[in-house]
Design a protein around this nucleic acid. Structure first.
Length: 262
DNA sequence: AGTACCACCTGACGGC
DNA sequence: TGCCGTCAGGTGGTAC
């Protein structure tokens, strides 16, 4: 589930359960989760005997600064997660990398599908730039958002999901934002007037902050959220219609045709 | 530039 | 029970 609200939730989890504890060991259970330029030895040098001191999030990327002089960079792919647990408890399923702190605390990077990864950097901002990431979706202001839409064409959903333009929004939350504005996901950007674009920016902030407050848990989100009804034929949370799944450039988009026009 | 499509890798689920 | 197809919220590359 790792879009911006999920990653922000992991960040808070890491703040709670991973900072200011001395790291005793780091175990890489599956080497493939490390980015190509990161070796296990290097990872140990940076972590073991040190503490994680601060966190940062940019879009779907999470960073943690080690007292050992570098930042860890977590990227979650479709299914990765950060799971704190304690020695003595069963390790979470699909644990791929484990940080063992002195005492019982453990922090697992789990990744069933192996599409996430862990990297290292000396500068998160430079790292994001190298990845081509645009501004964080919660940091971009209205003017910058309008300017972004101004310089591209095509479908609105695609623009919201493009990490180079706006970092943090993925398939689920782009659908949610567009549903809340009653905009069909395939709507050409050119069809949205200035007021609609401004409202979209405000809505995107609302949806993301509401989701963060709910801990990125669908069941804890407002009844009116589409993401709680993400299956074809489900009842629309806002009208008598039902939820439909369509394909937009190969991805599943969910919407209510009655609310969001054809 | 934008879009469709395939690939990556693994798991869950429904149908027969 | 077993096999098969389909789908999954991420990204990245290619070809039109």
């Amino acid at each position: 589930m790792p879009e911006l609200p999920d990653v922000e939730t992991y960040r808070r989890r890491l703040e709670d359960r991973g900072l200011d504890r001395t790291i005793r060991a780091v175990d890489v259970l599956r080497r493939e989760v490390l980015e190509d330029d990161v070796g296990t030895g290097e990872l140990e040098d940076v972590l073991v005997g040190h503490q994680l001191l601060e966190t940062r999030r940019h879009g779907k990327h999470l960073f943690a600064r080690s007292g050992g002089g570098a930042w860890l960079a977590f990227h979650f792919g479709m299914t990765a997660e950060l799971v704190p647990y304690e020695a003595g408890e069963d390790a979470p399923e699909y644990e791929r990398l484990r940080i063992a702190f002195e005492g019982p605390a453990r922090l697992a990077f789990t990744c069933p599908r192996m599409l996430g990864d862990v990297g290292m950097t000396h500068d998160p901002a430079a790292y994001c730039e190298a990845k081509g990431l645009g501004p964080d979706a919660l940091a971009i202001d209205e003017d910058a958002f309008l300017a972004y839409l101004e310089r591209r064409s095509g479908m609105i959903k695609t623009a919201l999901m493009d990490q180079r333009g706006l970092a943090g929004i993925g398939n689920v939350y782009s659908d949610e934002i567009l549903f809340q504005r009653r905009i069909h996901p395939a709507t050409p950007i050119a069809d949205l007037d200035r007021d609609a674009r401004r409202a979209l920016h405000a809505c995107l902030r609302d949806v993301l902050t509401t989701a963060i407050e709910a801990g990125a848990e669908p069941d804890a989100m407002p009844e009116g959220f589409l993401l709680r009804r993400r299956e074809p034929g489900a009842d629309c949370p806002a009208c008598d219609g039902s939820v439909e799944r369509i394909k937009i450039s190969g991805r599943s988009a969910y919407l209510c045709p009655a609310c969001q026009g054809a």
